[in-house]
Design a protein around this nucleic acid. Structure first.
Length: 259
DNA sequence: ATGTCGATCGCTGATCGA
């Protein structure tokens, strides 16, 4: 079973890329972020024709998340939930569903803009709410994957140049990431020997992709119960090389589970 | 710190968020 996280930065613009990529990779579950569309304009029909069921939580212009499940292998998408329970938020950043026996949490974590800003405070509040809720969710669903654009680079090796106290790498953000790990979650990417300087996001500006100036901010955390089932975790840079790419590359984890 | 990109409003570009 292959589970993916991919911030597509507008599903409308990226749908051709996504459909080509799904056809080529045949992955089972996809967590999408920044779909930037409401459910009423979500391309359910196109995805269904490509062999995928979908659930989405979207809004105009900003944010928006979705989970895709390959019909042939996953069966029905069940127990769908939108947003973090008890956390009032008009921003659509979380969707959760049970797919093929795995509880899949798809999150578009707040960017935070700048350390100390109002948006940064919101990011930290959001992270606390997510962590508190996830603790309960793990008790109910031990087989859980948290995939998303975390907007946090957990360690210095996840960053091109050594930044400190900047957004994405600041101490409070990294502490929040470690709080998620402390729930019993494991960063699937770090279970394996990986190439150096491999990132999941590159700024559109400054020729960042060509210079490989990036951040590893898209992650797939797996729960304790799934840890030993992880077979691989890779970042696929290929879609970032296409015309009109998303600024993020998809991250893929392969689990050995019965579907 | 920002040379790009995407969406919106609503006009043919400015503004915002990332």
């Amino acid at each position: 079973m292959k589970i993916v996280t991919w911030n597509v930065n507008s599903l409308k613009v990226r749908l051709p890329h996504l459909l080509d990529w799904l056809a080529a990779t045949q992955v089972d579950v996809v967590c999408l972020q920044e779909i930037k569309c409401e459910e009423k304009s979500f391309p359910f029909a196109e995805l269904e024709a490509a062999g995928y069921q979908a659930v989405a939580s979207g809004q105009k212009t900003y944010n928006g998340v979705a989970i895709l499940a390959r019909s042939e292998t996953c069966g029905e998408i069940r127990e769908v939930q939108r947003n973090i329970p008890g956390f009032e938020d008009e921003q659509r950043r979380v969707i959760v569903a049970t797919v093929g026996g795995v509880r899949v949490v798809c999150g578009y974590f707040p960017n935070g803009q700048a350390v100390g800003s109002e948006k940064f405070e919101y990011k930290l509040r959001w992270l606390t709410a997510l962590t508190d809720w996830l603790r309960e969710e793990l008790a109910l669903h031990p087989q859980l994957v948290l995939g998303g654009d975390y907007n946090i680079a957990p360690e210095d090796r996840d960053v091109t140049t050594e930044w400190h106290d900047e957004i994405h790498v600041s101490v409070p953000e990294r502490e929040a990431f470690r709080a998620l790990i402390a729930l019993g979650m494991t960063d699937a990417f770090r279970l394996f020997e990986q190439p150096e300087k491999l990132y999941s996001w590159w700024d559109y500006r400054m020729m960042a992709f060509r210079r490989n100036v990036g951040l590893r901010i898209d992650h797939l955390l797996v729960s304790t119960a799934l840890r030993d089932a992880v077979r691989s975790c890779v970042i696929d840079k290929a879609p970032r090389k296409l015309e009109r790419p998303s600024d993020h590359a998809p991250v893929i984890v392969e689990l050995e589970t019965v579907l």
